[in-house]
Amino acid sequence: MIACADLLSCPECGRDLGPREHTLRCPRGHSFDIAKQGYISLLTGASTKMTGDTPAMLDARADFQRAGHFTPIAAALAAAVAAMPAPPRTAHARDSGMTRPGAAVTAASAARLAATLLPIGSSGPTTTAATPATAEAVLEIGAGTGYYLAMALDAMPGARGLALDVSKPAARRSARAHERAGAVLADAWRGLPVRTGAVAAVLSVFAPRNAEEVARVLNPGGRFFVVTPTPRHLTELIEPLDMVRVDAGKTERLADSLEDRFELLDRTPVEYRMSLTHTDIANVSAMGPSAFHAAEQRAERIAALPDPFEVTASVTVSVYRPRG
């Protein structure tokens, strides 16, 4: 695994973080330990109001992803990321020696930033004068298991990844997602603990978005990739299992919410049929927004469905670039 420390900034003061023994530390002395599971927590301040995925939700999602049912979605996203133009090879943007993430950063998840992130014999934190690594970097917000980030990195040889999530169980899991990725526990709504202009691509797959912060951390020529479900996504399961329904105007509202800071470059539909067993259906209903919705009757309702059962997967992959 390659070092990812040069991509991160202190959630307390916004200055660059650098390795020191088994911690990351900024020039002002704020220090953050790397967990033995391989992720780093950049959660500070009061407890976040955001609730992340539970271990049970992540187990269900990992099983469903491992079965390959969302592979076409991940492949379409990875192809879009791999096709983006190469960004200019410039140093990360600076503002008087410090970047400016949101006021504080809390719980989240990512990929992995383990002890190998720290060079042996490191004498202290890096400073703003340090030269960043030249490898392109991809950040996934709300990374969960790190599945989509790992697919994107496989399509970009040499690129590095950061998986960020508000869930500690997700951070632990995504720390093992890919050898070229690091995992960060943080709350994206309090600001991304990432240096200004540090990443070439930001991914948001079925996850919330902080448009202002995404625009800040993208480098010149960077791209924002967003995957959203359409109203046809899992439509055959919505009524039988009383699952949460996707609003018809979701994609258009996304574009409206990003319009001030981003320009839409491309919008690609991905739709196909899945043959799901009862186990698959139990996993897909337990891994997302419907996990706690009508859960008590779910097993009985799933048992009443054919096995296997044909279900539609339908999403939109949107590509944006920052304005001006």
Rank of each mutant, 00 (worst) to 15 (best):
G38E: 11
G52P: 00
A83M: 09
P85R: 12
P72W: 09
P87S: 05
A82H: 04
A80P: 01
L77H: 06
L77M: 11
T54L: 10
P85S: 01
D59N: 05
A80S: 13
Y39L: 06
D63F: 01
F32Y: 13
P85C: 05
H69Y: 12
A56C: 06
A56M: 14
H30E: 02
R89G: 02
G97Q: 01
A86I: 07
G97Y: 12
I73W: 11
L42P: 02
A86D: 07
D59G: 02
S96V: 15
S31V: 06
T54K: 00
I73M: 12
A62G: 10
L42I: 05
A91I: 11
A82G: 03
G97E: 11
A91E: 15
H69L: 05
A75G: 09
A80W: 04
M98R: 11
D95T: 15
S41N: 03
R66Y: 00
M50C: 08
L43D: 07
P88T: 09
R61A: 02
H69N: 02
P85H: 11
P72D: 04
A67D: 05
G97M: 07
S96A: 15
S31M: 06
M50I: 11
T51C: 04
P85I: 03
R89A: 15
K36Q: 09
H69C: 00
L77P: 00
L58F: 02
M84V: 05
R94E: 13
A75M: 11
P55F: 09
G97K: 08
I34A: 02
I34L: 13
A46D: 14
I34C: 02
S41V: 09
I73L: 12
F70Q: 10
R66P: 02
A78E: 00
A91Q: 14
S31E: 15
T90V: 14
T51Q: 15
R66I: 08
T54Q: 10
A74E: 08
G68V: 03
M50G: 03
D59A: 11
A56Y: 07
M98G: 12
M57Q: 01
A62P: 02
A62L: 12
T44V: 15
Q65E: 15
T44N: 03
A74R: 13
Q37A: 13
G68M: 10
R66E: 02
A60N: 06
G52Q: 04
A91L: 14
F64Y: 01
Q37H: 13
R94D: 15
K36H: 05
I73G: 05
Y39S: 03
Y39W: 07
A67S: 10
G38L: 07
P87E: 03
D95I: 14
K49N: 14
A46V: 11
H69I: 04
T71N: 14
Q37T: 03
P87V: 07
A56W: 08
A93L: 15
D63E: 11
K49G: 15
T44A: 06
A83V: 01
L58W: 07
K49L: 14
T90C: 01
A35Y: 05
A93I: 14
Q65P: 01
D95G: 03
L77E: 13
A86S: 12
F32W: 12
A67F: 03
I40K: 02
R89Y: 04
A62T: 04
A83G: 03
R94M: 12
I40A: 13
G38Y: 03
R66V: 01
I73R: 07
T48A: 08
P85T: 07
A93P: 00
P85V: 05
T51D: 12
G97H: 08
